[in-house]
């Protein structure tokens, strides 16, 4: 197994700042905008971006939540191991809101497909956008593309892109892992 660094802590930080800046460019005061981190690992990206928006843009009233898509996945009973659920925390109505999904790696697009179904249980959003830190282009199974994109990566199916976070894994970095 080999491991290649795609982004170090510094590069990751620059990208997060750029993504936050792009969000501000589009959403300005975030009055009707809600950020939704996709469980399990999109929530780390979301909380970093939320922190930048608060600290550097003074946007202290941003609404944010976490969405778990386990029960909406299309591979129930198809894998080796059962799917394990995570917490969903959305304590506001998304009816008529501008929703931004935030995830770490966009790969086949199936998670986002599930998230699009899952969010409907909380109302009908005015629009939904997608922010992904890493876009594994050329590996999509569905017609889903990010609106805000950290870094595009070309990786083959046998390879894995792993995003590490200081608060979870001890360091900020993105790795390409091949068997």
């Amino acid at each position: 197994m080999s491991r290649k660094v795609l982004l170090d802590s510094n590069q990751l930080n620059i990208i997060l700042h750029r993504l936050a800046c792009q969000l501000v460019e589009k959403h300005t005061d975030f009055k009707d905008t809600v950020l939704i981190g996709i469980q399990p690992r999109g929530v780390f990206v979301a909380s970093r971006i939320e922190k930048i928006l608060k600290e550097e843009y003074g946007l202290n009233d941003i609404k944010s939540g976490q969405l778990d898509i386990t029960f909406y996945r299309d591979d129930f009973r198809r894998g080796e191991k059962p799917l394990e659920a995570n917490k969903t925390r959305i304590d506001f109505i998304v009816e008529d809101k501008r929703v931004v999904f935030i995830d770490d790696v966009l790969y086949t697009g199936r998670s986002i497909r599930a998230a699009l179904t899952a969010i409907q249980s909380f109302g009908r959003p005015r629009e939904i956008e997608l922010l992904s830190l890493i876009d594994r282009r050329f590996s999509r199974h569905l017609p889903i593309q990010p609106d805000y994109n950290g870094r595009q990566v070309d990786a083959i199916n046998e390879e894995k892109v792993k995003v590490s976070w200081k608060e979870k894994d001890g360091e900020d970095a993105v790795y390409l892992i091949s068997k």
């Binding site: 029960f71 996945r73 129930f76 659920a85 969903t88 179904t117 249980s121």
Partner: peptide
């Protein structure tokens, strides 16, 4: 632990998930 997640689900505006549709 699983029931905790479903308890959250049944308190949503739409109280249904598609997991067992087959």
């Amino acid at each position: 632990k699983t029931a905790d997640h479903f308890k959250e689900v049944i308190n949503r505006p739409i109280k249904k998930v598609p997991s067992l549709r087959d």
